[in-house]
Design a protein around this nucleic acid. Structure first.
Lengths: 193, 193
DNA sequence: GTCTATAGTTGGATAGAC
DNA sequence: GTCTATCCAACTATAGAC
């Protein structure tokens, strides 16, 4: 089932989480994947090719765990779903850590790499709109512009908190607490107007 | 006045803004500073040493332009000062761009480089405390814990917005508007309790 | 203090056997 | 498809002259 390519990409995600995009060495990747360096160049054009495909791989995976919903579970309320979407990225599990790290690396790299900007902007926009829609379900009377602004702040805050967590500045529980309160603060604001 | 070390650090800030921490090559730095690579190793222990001192340099410089106050200007109100501190980092001037870019890079690098973490954590803490103190001056009745949490959110949000701006996701004016509103939202929250 | 020249390493990439 | 062996470029860092 898990093809060789997939196996290498999974390993790449782990190595990136450990060393960063720039710290990914083909040799270390080979070892992590349990294959030779030669095989990596057989399956991918070059190191950059591995990187690009890994970021794609990671993005697909994030979509899966954010949206995941067991078949016979209660459907979530909009408020619960909102918490889900914003708090699921702040969990200390290997998969989330890998994804968040890679996302942060992608964001940071995009500052210097125009090629990455486009993909990133598109993904960010979709994410902001998703959060804005959820906010709108919780506070249906709030104007669209206010919802959009709140969504942008909440997602940007999440990125900021995520980086602080990953760079060892704050504990994960603390990051979660700050995020939870931010949601409340923004919702209170939307309610008020 | 500007010593050789300072000259190199200024060049380092420019190179980092252009190529990122990951892209900083000692040789390119030497060229940018108009000196030889050998001289860099004379003034700094190694590449990481340059990076660390650049972080410090950037931090000092940010403090200067954040705190800058002409000799015969009206002293700022706490609220104005708060806006200053949080909005000055969102300006499209070469100096601020350099600082913000370098800060983002250092934050991203710290995820993988334990050496940078300590410095970064210290600088972040000082910054958060400064903002918390200003918030306390605006809302003297708010409990210390609430002030600290608000300060952490505002500074983390600033980092998030700054990255989006630098990576081309949003326009600078929009980032500023979002930040301004965030300050209001947090102050409203502190007032309420 | 500063430069030039170069040593020493790391790591991406390829060739060729199996 | 996969591995082993190896080449070669890119970089960091040092030695030694001035």
């Amino acid at each position: 089932m898990a093809s060789r390519s997939t196996q290498i990409l999974e390993a790449a995600a782990r190595v990136i989480a450990r060393r960063g995009v720039r710290g990914l060495r083909v040799e270390e990747l080979a070892e992590e994947a349990g294959v030779s360096t030669g095989l990596i160049y057989y399956h991918f054009k070059d190191r950059t090719g591995v990187l690009r495909q890994t970021l794609e791989f990671i993005n697909d995976r994030a979509e899966r765990y954010t949206t995941a919903q067991g078949p016979d579970e209660e459907p979530l309320s909009p408020r619960e779903e909102l918490d889900q979407v914003l708090l699921l990225e702040l969990q200390d599990t290997p998969e989330v850590r890998e994804n968040s790290t890679a996302w942060g690396e992608l964001r940071a790299s995009a500052v210097f790499d125009p090629v990455l900007r486009e993909d990133l902007a598109r993904a960010t926009l979709a994410w902001v709109q998703e959060v804005a829609a959820l906010l709108g379900q919780v506070q249906p009377l709030a104007p669209a512009a206010a919802l959009a602004a709140a969504a942008e702040r909440l997602t940007a805050l999440l990125e900021g908190l995520s980086m602080r967590w990953l760079s060892g500045g704050i504990a994960i529980e603390h990051a979660r607490a700050l995020m939870t309160e931010a949601i409340e603060v923004e919702l209170a604001r939307l309610r008020q107007r």
